[in-house]
Design a protein around this nucleic acid. Structure first.
Length: 781
DNA sequence: GCCTCCTGTCATCGT
DNA sequence: ATACGATGACAGGAG
């Protein structure tokens, strides 16, 4: 039995033209503002799998300062999550459940939707079904929600009730059609979207946890953000029991699996007092509108959820004021600190998620999701990066600011160089600075981006969004699909063996995750904000974290080869990795030459692991698409209409190799579906023929029975006639009064109804001649 | 090792 | 001419 953890992160783009002129005005006041503070909100939806419709079982608003409680995620206060946890456990025990978390963040001019799908399927669910549930459906759902909200700037409608994802709905076709029907420009590339499919082998909690840790490590390498956590996760992936314990979502296992107490974090306790202050401050800053909205959602959830009647106590917990929840959180934190609380629940995950600086949500990756073990382990290295979540939000630091705050990045408005400039933030994201201050300019110990660059403050929102249109609207490959269980980033890095790689990714063994400097550099907001590394540095990583399966790499990076820098590096890296291999390999050809594991010096273990991953998640085309940085998913390539497909090919500058691969993928995908339909049709025909045969056989038997009955009736009639014949002859007398011998005479009926007694010889001749000579009337006695 | 079934892929043809 | 679907044939994996 396999259990799947699907983490999906989506961010909807800002719509140009709806940007208020005033800088800092929340375009999407999803989250109530007060004094410039905006609190993120969790919308917790628990969806039954399978089920007809989902329901929201609670909502919560993060009201704590992540920076105050420390990176260990000590602060916990998300009301409603407790109820959600119990629902999840119950439904899981009843056959699985899909936990949908939506984190809304309102940054200046940019709304961030963070969707978390925690899918705990029953054993009977097929893997593909789960993938479908977590993939296109969720994307379409997000777009639906966005469309239903009327776009940006319409508060209170961003979560229309009743718009929950229907897991039973056709995941792709219908929902996407619905989205298109709504008029939403469904361009997958304009959605920051990444999701992680993580497989957890049941029955092995340590393995599962370790896999999560490994996934965190790989994602940390991809996003370049949470190398601290990621490095620890690497250890977890390698068997570190602490990290291994961090990620279990099993309701039973989570109660059993001990978690490394956060008390081991040196400064966690020291943050307690500071945390209280920040919590109070944060509580005072809670916006009333947000509270009202939250209350409405709670009421709605209560009405919708009949199960809540059985969980009133849970709802009480959910409806507790924030400060109460925070109090509970603190007490729970104390338990953690004391090492008495050894459980890890999804709530912990959410808490830890909320503990991340808001900016990192821009480029959130699994590595950014601070798994407890990894986070607690990564305390030392990240202690100086305490982030005040609320402050980070209140700074209205958006993604663009984060990008521009990158070192070596200068914001230039020269239109001539805009094209290239728009690439630079991403190209320089992964700049390696060993100095934490250098890594995060403008970052102090209390605020993530408190001293925002004044240059940015002088810019208007239009200015910001101009580049947002260029950069943010494109998908950011946030995390890897290669975060399968047994995924070992170190081994993966060995697949590509870039001796001069200075990507800063924790994947490379030369960049050991335990390296504090690399870990620190990973906290660069720029990296977190984009989730990207530079082309030449990260391409090898993106070979494993491409667009396939829902991740769409930056097209301008991977596809726009006409610009000098990124395109050159992209090609260079590509050539380095794949040499002269092409994907046009016939099945008989040594196809493995196009695969990374086939590079000289690769171990059989890596190959087998690759094969396992291939078997589990990625098809050959998906791997090829990843390898060539195809900025579209296979599903999109195959599923989109021909017009959209052609326009897509023309819209993006793709190499001939990429275009050819895309067309091949589309052809194969179409043919695959056609073959499936053909076989299904053939099977139906065979079944129909078999049914026809059965029907015919049954009809034959019926006819046989009828024939037998007829024969039987005929025999009866013959017998009766024979008896009547003898009876008649027994009564006949000849002229002399003697009995007529029936052997010599026969009875013959005439047309007029009279009966003649005819000698048989004459009768036979008269039959031939038609002359009834010698006939005589029967004389009855 | 062989067989069967399933699936993906290619080639080909017709629309 | 091109795209696309249908289908036979083949190969490979899994049981």
């Amino acid at each position: 039995m396999r259990r799947w953890l699907l983490l999906r992160f989506s961010r909807l783009p800002a719509v140009p033209g709806t940007v208020p002129a005033a800088e800092g005005t929340p375009l999407c006041p999803v989250l109530g503002t007060r004094d410039g503070r905006r609190a993120p909100r969790f919308i917790v939806s628990l969806l039954r799998v399978p089920g007809r419709c989902g329901r929201r079982v609670g909502s919560a608003r993060v009201t704590q300062a992540a920076g105050a409680r420390g990176p260990a995620g000590a602060g916990r206060g998300v009301p409603g999550l407790a109820a959600a946890m119990k629902h999840l456990k119950r439904w899981w025990s009843a056959g699985g459940g899909l936990l949908h978390l939506t984190l809304l963040l309102s940054l200046a001019g940019l709304r961030v939707d963070l969707d978390l799908y925690l899918l705990l399927p029953p054993p009977t669910l097929l893997r593909d079904e789960l993938l479908l549930l977590g993939g296109p459906a969720s994307s379409a759902y997000a777009l639906n929600r966005f469309s239903a909200s009327g776009g940006w700037g319409r508060a209170g409608q961003l979560h229309p009730k009743g718009r929950e994802l229907d897991p039973a709905a056709p995941p792709e076709g219908q929902l996407l059609r619905e989205v298109r029907a709504l008029g939403v420009p469904f361009i997958p590339r304009t959605r920051v979207d990444a999701w992680l499919v993580h497989s957890v082998a049941a029955g092995s909690a340590d393995e599962a946890h370790g896999l999560l840790g490994a996934a965190a490590a790989s994602s940390a390498g991809g996003a370049g953000t949470s190398v601290d956590g990621g490095s620890q996760a690497v250890q977890g992936g390698g068997g570190d029991p602490r990290a291994a314990q961090s990620g279990s979502l099993d309701a039973e296992e989570e109660e059993k699996a001990p978690v490394e107490p956060t008390a081991q974090v040196p400064d966690a306790g020291g943050c307690a007092s500071e945390e209280n202050e920040v919590l109070r401050e944060k509580h005072e800053a809670v916006d009333h509108s947000s509270q009202r909205e939250e209350n409405e959602e709670r009421v709605s959830a209560q009405k919708e959820n009949s199960l809540q009647q059985n969980n009133e106590d849970e709802n009480k917990v959910a409806e507790k004021p924030d400060w109460e929840a925070e109090k509970n959180t603190e007490s729970r934190n104390e338990r953690h600190l004391n090492g008495t609380d050894t459980s890890f629940s999804l709530e912990d995950l959410f808490q830890l998620l909320s503990s991340q600086p808001e900016n990192s949500l821009e480029g959130v990756s699994l590595g950014d999701i601070p798994l407890p073990g990894s986070i607690s382990d990564g305390m030392n290295s990240s202690a100086h990066h305490h982030v005040n979540f609320s402050q980070a939000i209140s700074q209205d630091v958006n993604l663009h600011e984060a990008i521009l705050l990158c070192p070596n990045n200068t914001f230039r408005r020269n239109p001539v160089t805009r094209t290239s400039q728009s690439q630079e933030p991403f190209l320089q994201l992964n700049s390696h600075t060993t100095n934490p201050e250098q890594t995060l300019p403008g970052t102090n110990s209390t605020g993530f981006l408190s001293p925002v660059d004044n240059r940015m403050r002088n810019l208007t929102s239009q200015d910001l969004l101009y580049d947002l249109d260029v950069n943010i609207f494109d998908e950011i490959n946030l995390m890897s699909l290669g975060t399968e269980d047994d995924f070992d980033p170190i081994n993966v890095s060995q697949l590509f063996d870039e001796p001069d790689s200075d990507s800063g990714l924790s994947l490379d063994s030369s960049h050991n995750s335990t390296s504090v400097t690399k870990s620190n550099s990973s906290h660069c907001v720029c990296e977190g904000a984009t989730g990207y590394c530079t082309d030449h540095e990260s391409s090898s990583h993106h070979d494993l974290e491409g667009a396939v399966g829902g991740n769409y790499p930056e097209p301008n990076k991977f596809c726009h080869m006409d610009h000098s820098d990124s395109g050159f590096h992209g090609d260079l890296t590509f050539q380095h990795v794949f040499h002269n291999h092409t994907y046009h390999l016939q099945p008989s050809a040594p196809e493995s030459t196009s695969e990374p594991f086939s590079l000289p010096g690769r171990s059989q273990k890596i190959r087998s692991r690759y094969l396992e991953d291939t078997d589990r998640n990625l098809s050959r085309d998906e791997w090829r698409a990843k390898a060539l940085h195809i900025p579209f998913s296979v599903d999109e390539i195959v599923g989109m209409p021909v017009d959209s497909f052609n326009s897509m090919l023309s819209r993006y500058y793709l190499t001939d190799l990429q275009v050819s691969l895309i067309r091949d993928i589309r052809r194969r995908g179409k043919n695959k579906v056609a073959a499936q339909n053909c076989r299904k049709r053939k099977l139906d025909i065979i079944l129909n023929l078999e049914n026809d045969v059965c029907n015919l056989q049954a009809k034959k038997e019926t006819l046989k029975r009828e024939r037998a009955q007829c024969n039987k009736a005929i025999n009866i009639m013959k017998q009766k006639l024979h008896d009547l014949y003898h009876d008649v002859f027994s009564r006949l007398r000849d002229e002399e009064g003697r009995p007529v011998n029936p052997n010599h005479y026969a009875l013959q009926c005439t047309h007029d109804g009279s009966v003649l007694l005819v000698p048989k010889e004459l009768g036979a001749s008269s039959h031939k001649k038609g002359n009834p000579k010698g006939k005589e009337k029967v004389r009855r006695n």
